[in-house]
Design a binder for these strands. Structure first.
Length: 267
DNA sequence: ATGACCCGTCGCACGGGA
């Protein structure tokens, strides 16, 4: 069977609902991993998505973060949060908060995690340490599936550009997060656990960027970053027939600042 | 063409995004 899997940081599923429905109808993914829902799980537009033939497992608590898996292949073994997922201790908080940044499910022949890795804010910030801890915990969480025979992938907004080629101008990122050796080492540790970076085709220009800032004409100027990634195990990678970044979804008004990454599989 | 930030919020600016 052919299976189409995609990931999209949608930057508010409420604000993006017309775009989401339009994209589901045109791209027809079998499984779509979403990040940055910015809504509570019970506020997800389940009915509108169901009308197009999809069920949803959502994990969110309101204002920030939030992840979901939308599937027309059903759900088994849904897991919310990474096992041992670290929380974030904000400056004015007494206890760390476990944020809704990860959800896993088996959909038909494939198991996926939809992840929204912490941003890190600034190198040296407590949020940066949180980001590294979070990625290390992600690695521990996927070891068994990564080594398994079943097609498996981690999809989402990793908030790390894996190589210098994955940002429009390295000089603009001097001292910034998303490109540091320690963040990239955390991705390398995921690959060493048995996951491969499934590289998508760009549909225009030479690099498959997935994010362009809203400001300063970043999209028309193609000042982008590749930070939305698909990390698949050997069985997943062997089944890939195509992968591309759907930059069309970034055009016009009322879009997310990220655009979907699509992977086609023959299983 | 894709055009100079956008999201949610007990807001009337601000934190967060990257």
């Amino acid at each position: 069977m052919t299976v189409r899997i995609a990931t999209w940081n949608i930057n508010s599923v409420t604000a993006r609902l017309p775009k989401l429905l339009e994209w589901l109808e045109s791209a027809k993914p079998d499984v779509l991993c979403l990040q940055e829902l910015k809504c509570a799980a019970d506020a997800f537009p389940y009915e509108e998505v169901r009308a197009l033939g999809y069920e949803t497992e959502a994990h969110g608590n309101g204002r920030w973060n939030g992840v979901a898996i939308v599937s027309r292949l059903g759900f088994q073994d849904v897991v919310r949060d990474l096992p041992e997922q670290p929380g974030y201790l904000a400056d004015d908080a007494l206890v760390p908060v476990i944020e809704p940044r990860a959800i896993a499910a088996t959909c038909g022949p494939v198991r996926v995690w939809s992840v929204y890795v912490p941003n890190g804010r600034e190198v040296g910030h407590a949020h940066f340490r949180y980001k590294l801890d979070w990625l290390a915990t992600l690695r521990e969480s996927v070891l068994a599936d990564a080594a398994g025979e079943r097609p498996f992938a981690v999809l989402g907004d990793f908030n790390v550009a894996p190589t210098d080629e994955d940002v429009y101008d390295l000089a603009d990122f001097e001292g910034a997060t998303h490109v540091t050796p320690v963040e990239r080492a955390a991705l390398a540790a995921l690959r060493e656990a048995g996951l491969a970076d499934v590289m998508p085709r760009p549909l225009k220009y030479d690099r498959p960027y997935t994010y362009w800032d809203y400001r300063q004409l970043a999209f028309p100027k193609n000042r982008g970053m590749r930070i939305d990634l698909v990390y698949g195990n050997a069985a997943f990678e062997a089944a890939v027939t195509d992968s591309y970044v759907d930059r069309e979804a970034r055009k016009g008004k009322g879009t997310s600042d990220h655009t979907p990454v699509v992977v086609d599989l023959n299983l």
